[in-house]
Write a protein that binds this DNA or RNA. Structure first.
Lengths: 197, 197
DNA sequence: CGGATAATCGGAGGCGCCTCCGTTTAAACT
DNA sequence: AGTTTAAACGGAGGCGCCTCCGATTATCCG
């Protein structure tokens, strides 16, 4: 059973041929843009065309629309998570936290009103941000910790609770003032978080 | 605003041309069979063909797949409801109740594993059987009342509770013994319901 | 019973989905 | 560099979705 692995395997996922990897990446990139602009129901053939590959190639890499959606979604989520460390480097801890929450909300906003594919994904795969060691949870936790260590914010805040408060935005009714509201919510949360002085 | 209704309107829905009505009915009939056999994702063009009408006709009557599914679903539900009075006429009250529950379970069984269309329908439109004066609730209630009046079963049972107990079958894991299990559940419920003597 | 007319039909057409398989090409080996 | 081979490509093809509009026909009215 222990078949000899090909030698020098830096990463299992690197076992793609160079052209295959290029195509895959291009597809994800194009798909991200297309989904953002036209929603997840947009034509996959269009995406393939824009990426300069055949439709067959798209389907080989992503056997179903949902697969592609998930990859795009996950990629954006990873971007959001890594933005945390970036922001922490450039801003004061509380500002970093606030800005990051803003982005989080912005991210969720683009996912609102998306059709089945995503709704299913977000509930079935919610581990990605609400559970255990999820990426998003981790990012938020580290921002909170830093800010607390510096004395900018209270120490008695559960990451999970804050995350829930933010997630509630997802179920806010669609409306023109949506953005405004969500920013107010963040302001409110920040006020509550900051240490009195 | 008060436009003159055309005279002699027995029922608003009878305002269809004769051929239109025939086609509509045939479509529903064929669709019911097709959905039962191949699931709700079956080809609508096939359904139209089997009903002997053009695809255009199908779409005129049912603007989307979901519409058609809903009509079929509702029709079956109505059949189930009316079966209650029928059974009550032919059997002793407790037997009628038991047999009806069996059918209810059988009905739900065919809806298991059906795709989105229906899942959405059942949650969004759950009024059809779990709420207020729903058809199904009504049917069950009348069966219960008759049986209780005749002294076959206890009197202190809430229709809603029994309905919930039955509905729980919907979330039972898929398995070969499914039918067996559900029948055992019904037996159990009936035993609990019957008056001791 | 025609004739008028508005409701209804039906299928062609354009598009997207997804599969299948002959062709191309990166990469491993000599 | 040349050969081999398995990975990857890509688009034709078959099917289903849904729309649109000219042809059909039930129904109304004189």
């Amino acid at each position: 059973m222990a078949s000899a692995e090909p030698k020098t395997t830096p990463l299992a996922s690197t076992r793609l041929r160079a052209d295959a990897r290029r195509n895959r990446e291009k597809l994800v990139e194009v798909a991200a843009a297309a989904f953002a602009e036209k929603g997840v129901e947009t034509s996959l053939e269009d995406i393939a065309r824009q990426a300069g590959v055949g439709i067959g190639t798209l389907y080989r890499h992503f056997p179903s629309r949902e697969h592609l959606v998930e990859v795009v979604y996950r990629r954006e989520l990873e971007g959001l998570a890594s933005a945390a460390t970036e922001l922490a480097r450039q801003h004061s801890p509380d500002m970093a936290l606030e800005e990051w929450m803003r982005r989080f909300v912005g991210y969720i906003a683009t996912k609102r009103g998306m059709a089945n594919s995503l709704r299913i994904l977000m509930t079935s795969n919610s581990s990605l941000f609400s559970e255990g060691s999820g990426l998003i949870r981790g990012a938020l936790e580290s921002l909170l910790k830093t800010a607390a260590d510096e004395g900018c914010i209270r120490r008695d805040i559960e990451t999970t609770d804050l995350l829930h408060a933010l997630s509630s935005i997802y179920s806010m009714p669609e409306s023109p003032e949506w953005r405004e509201r969500s920013h107010r919510l963040i302001g409110l949360l920040m006020d509550g978080l900051r240490t009195r002085r």
